[in-house]
Every structure is written in C-alpha cells, then in structure tokens.
C-alpha cells in the first residue's frame, strides 16, 4: 500500500508540498500526542497519527523519518510549521476525523504494524 492510496481512501488533506506519494510505502503506524512516546514507539517509515499541530512535531518526525504525520480533529498547523515541514521533507496531512477513527481506517485498509 502506498501513501497516495492512503490519502485517497481516508480523504486526507495535504498541507505540505505535493510529492510522488505512490513511491512512499508506509510500513506501520503509531498514535500518540506525547512526543517522547512517539520517539520511543514510532519507527522509520511509520505513519504518525496525532492531534498535536505545533512546530515541534516536525522535528520529531524528521528525526524518526516517519512516512507522514496525520493531524486529526481539524487541528491546524500554523504557516511556520508547514514551512519547516517542507524544508525538512516531512509530509503533513490533516483530517477532521478523531485519531481513533483514523487508526481504525488505516487498520481496515491493511496497515497493521
């Protein structure tokens, strides 16, 4: 499964610059709003689901090399966050769904690590 399919199936909004999402293959997912837990639990190429939307999520995602961040419940990262994400090559996606629902849908389409 590639990121393009995930974006389409979950109807996610793309906040950062377009990329060739078909070439990105997420290998699992991790959900938490506590940055240290994400540091410990999220692996490289995982999708990180969170309702945190501030600047520091970009640093965490970049250090961990996550495939993308899905920001839930319509939380809005500000312009500085999006700019930094573009600089660091971090993909930011958003949705109005709560994290629980996003996880359920990811699980349903086969992202089960």
């Amino acid at each position: 499964m590639n990121l393009q399919q995930i974006i389409e199936r979950l109807n996610l909004n793309l906040l950062t610059d377009p990329r060739d999402f078909e070439t990105i293959h997420p290998e699992g997912g991790y959900t938490s709003d506590l940055l240290s837990c994400v540091m410990a639990g999220a692996k490289s190429k995982y999708i990180w689901v969170t309702l945190q939307a501030h600047l520091n999520i970009v640093a965490v995602a970049a250090l961990l090399d996550v495939a993308a961040i899905i920001v839930t419940e319509d939380a809005q990262p500000d312009a500085a966050t999006i700019t930094k994400a573009n600089e660091q090559g971090v993909i930011l996606l958003s949705t109005s769904m709560p994290s629980f629902e996003v996880d359920g849908k990811l699980w349903e389409i086969g992202l089960r690590n």
Binding site: L34, S36, A40
Partner: peptide
C-alpha cells in the same frame, strides 16, 4: 499540552 513532559525523556 504541547505533548512534552510525558516523563519518558530520560527513559528514552
């Protein structure tokens, strides 16, 4: 509220 302070930093 920003997601820091989980008490896991030194553990990590």
């Amino acid at each position: 509220e920003m997601g820091f302070g989980a008490g896991m930093g030194l553990v990590n």
